[in-house]
Design a protein around this nucleic acid. Structure first.
Length: 258
DNA sequence: AGCACA
């Protein structure tokens, strides 16, 4: 029953932490900016959910339209592992025509604090604030992944297909489609243009049940990879999700539509 | 650019 246990891909780019000196400790919440500000908040959250739910249970998505918080969102996962995978695999992913910038959130989300019992309402919190003092306490366990109440029954229960959502800019968006049901054929997106079928075969044939790779000349950047059955394709999908053939492009793997 | 808790 333990089909796929390995969620990590520690090989190619294990430590992606030292880019611009912006090192933030791990957190089950990811902070996203450089989001397209023309997208309305509800639609934005919906699309974010469609794109990020593949990495694990999402407890909450927060986004605001105020000047200080436009173009940003917080996605709260149930555990740090999901957040890490989401960050690594969706880093720079084109979302509504803009590459997402993803980091760990700086502080623990309220919904998480509530679940682990460390939540302190904001008013009471202010009383304890001191300036100019540097104490080393309070930086406690930020990842208590267990026993959370999935308080995420929100508006995202049934996610509609999200490909090519029109938005006020009038242009076609670049949101990946909502997950298709399991299929022995995988749909690969966001490949570099110079990707060849042979390159993909090298990658995918290492997983059992591999049958063939198909690419469409007229449509660069995508491919189909077929396996014997959907359990085999699922293993391959998890093994190669987010793989970067080039530094820039994280491949996005979903099931092909039937 | 911008780290919140609608």
């Amino acid at each position: 029953m333990a089909l796929l246990e390995r969620k990590d891909m520690g090989d190619m780019s294990s430590n992606n932490n030292s880019s611009t000196g912006t090192e933030v400790p791990q957190n089950m919440t990811i902070y996203i900016n450089n989001l397209n500000e023309k997208i309305k908040i509800d639609k934005l959250k919906e699309s974010l959910h469609a794109v990020f739910s593949q990495f694990g249970k999402i407890l909450e998505i927060l986004a605001f339209k105020t000047l200080k918080h436009k173009g940003q969102a917080w996605v709260v996962f149930e555990d740090v592992q999901s957040a890490s995978n989401a960050m690594r695999q969706m880093q720079s992913f084109p979302f509504y025509d803009k590459p997402m910038r993803i980091q760990y959130a700086k502080t623990k989300s309220d919904i998480v604090a509530k679940a682990d019992g460390t939540f302190v309402p904001r008013e009471k919190r202010r009383r304890h604030e001191e300036k100019g003092k540097k104490k080393k306490d309070q930086h406690d366990a930020n990842q208590v992944g267990a026993g959370l109440t999935p308080a995420y029954g929100g508006a995202y229960g049934t996610t509609p297909p999200l490909s090519q959502i029109p938005y006020p800019g009038g242009v076609k968006s670049m949101v990946p489609e909502a997950p298709a049901p399991p299929n022995n054929i995988l749909f690969i997106q966001n490949l570099p243009n110079e990707t060849t079928p042979m390159m993909l075969q090298m990658l995918f044939q290492q997983y059992p049940g591999f049958k063939e790779v198909r690419m469409v000349e007229a449509k660069p950047g995508i491919a189909f990879v077929e396996y014997g059955d959907e359990m085999q394709s699922t293993v391959a999908m998890h093994g190669l999700q987010g793989f970067k053939i080039l530094q820039q492009n994280s491949m996005l793997i979903t099931y092909a539509k039937k």
